[in-house]
C-alpha cells in the first residue's frame, strides 16, 4: 500500500527542518538584497556559495587538517576514556584518587591552557590534538563509568552465585550494561572533539601548510573576505553534523536490536 509521503515519519523528520532551513536562507538572501547589505558586513547565502566554490581547494585542505585532528583526538579520547572508566570500576580507590583530576581537567577552560600546551608540545598539531582530547574525554569517562556501574543488582547476584570470575563479570555483564551509556558519551564527545580542535587552533593561530578551518576564519577576518569566513564556518557545522550522524548510526547498529530506547521505531 502506498501511503502519502506526509505520513511517512522519516520523510517528515527530514522534510520539516529542511523547509525551515530553506525559508531562512531565502529570507536572508532577500534581506541582503533589499537593504543592500555590504558583503563584508553580512554576505548573502549565494555569495557564500560562490566563495565556497572559488576557494574549494584551500577550504578542502583546511577541512582535511581540522577533520584529521578531530578524528585522532576523538579516537584517543575514546580509547583512554574507556580505559580509565574500566580502571575506575575495578577499584574504588583508583576512582576516588583519580576522578577529581578528570573533573579539574573538564572545568578548566581549554582556551586558558591551550597557550601552555602549545609551548610544551613539540609541534602545533600535537598541541591541538592534546587540547581536543582534554575537552572530548570527560563525557566518555563519566558516561562509561556510570554505565559500568549500572548493572542490574540481581543479574550481579546471579553471576556471583554461578561463581563468575572478575573477567566474566566485566566482559559479560558490565561492558554490555555500559553500552547505551557509552554511546551516549560518544555523541557528546564527537562534537566536543571538533570544538576542541577549532578552539585550540584559534588560540594557536598557525598558518601555512597546516592551517585548518579555524585559521581560515581568522585569516578571512583579517583580509575582510567575509564570504569565505562564512564558507569555513559552514564546513565546520557540516562536519559536526556528520560526526553526530555517524555516532547515531553506530549506536543504532549496536543497540537497536535489544535496547528499549529503540522500541518506539517498530510498530
Amino acid at each position: 500500500m502506498k501511503a502519502p509521503l506526509v505520513h511517512n515519519e522519516r520523510f517528515v523528520q527530514i522534510f520539516a527542518p529542511l523547509m525551515v532551513g530553506v525559508f531562512a536562507l531565502v529570507c536572508w538572501q532577500a534581506a541582503v538584497v533589499a537593504w543592500d547589505i555590504k558583503p563584508y558586513v553580512l554576505p548573502s547565502p549565494l555569495a557564500v556559495g560562490v566563495s565556497l566554490i572559488e576557494n574549494f581547494g584551500v577550504l578542502m585542505h583546511a577541512l582535511y587538517i581540522t577533520l584529521t585532528i578531530t578524528v585522532i583526538a576523538f579516537l584517543i579520547a575514546v580509547v583512554f576514556g574507556s580505559a580509565l572508566a574500566l580502571l575506575f570500576v575495578q577499584s574504588k580507590w583508583i576512582e576516588i584518587s583519580l576522578f577529581p583530576y578528570a573533573i579539574i581537567m573538564q572545568v578548566t577552560p581549554v582556551v586558558a591552557i591551550a597557550p601552555l600546551i602549545i609551548i610544551w608540545a613539540d609541534d602545533t598539531t600535537t598541541a591541538l590534538i592534546i587540547c581536543a582530547v582534554i575537552i572530548a574525554i570527560f563525557p566518555i569517562i563519566s558516561n562509561t563509568t556510570m554505565g559500568l556501574r549500572s548493572v542490574d543488582p540481581n543479574l550481579m547476584n546471579l553471576f556471583r552465585m554461578n561463581r563468575a570470575s572478575r573477567w566474566q563479570i566485566l566482559t559479560r555483564l558490565r561492558i554490555p550494561s555500559a553500552l547505551p551509556y557509552f554511546f551516549g558519551g560518544l555523541r557528546i564527545s564527537s562534537g566536543l572533539a571538533l570544538i576542541g580542535a577549532v578552539v585550540a587552533e584559534f588560540v594557536a593561530g598557525t598558518g601555512g601548510a597546516k592551517a585548518g578551518l579555524a585559521y581560515m576564519i581568522l585569516q578571512s577576518g583579517y583580509t575582510l573576505q567575509i564570504p569565505r569566513m562564512f564558507a569555513a564556518l559552514f564546513l565546520i557545522t557540516l562536519t559536526g553534523i556528520a560526526l553526530f550522524a555517524l555516532m547515531v548510526w553506530l549506536s543504532r547498529l549496536a543497540l537497536a536490536s535489544w535496547h528499549e530506547s529503540y522500541l518506539e521505531n517498530e510498530q
Partner: peptide
C-alpha cells in the same frame, strides 16, 4: 525475570553453563 536484555533467549538460558 532478571534476563540480560542484550542477549537472545538461548544465550540467557545458557548463562550458568557458559560461566562454567
Amino acid at each position: 525475570p532478571t534476563l540480560m536484555p542484550w542477549a537472545r533467549l538461548d544465550k540467557n538460558v545458557r548463562l550458568p553453563l557458559d560461566l562454567k
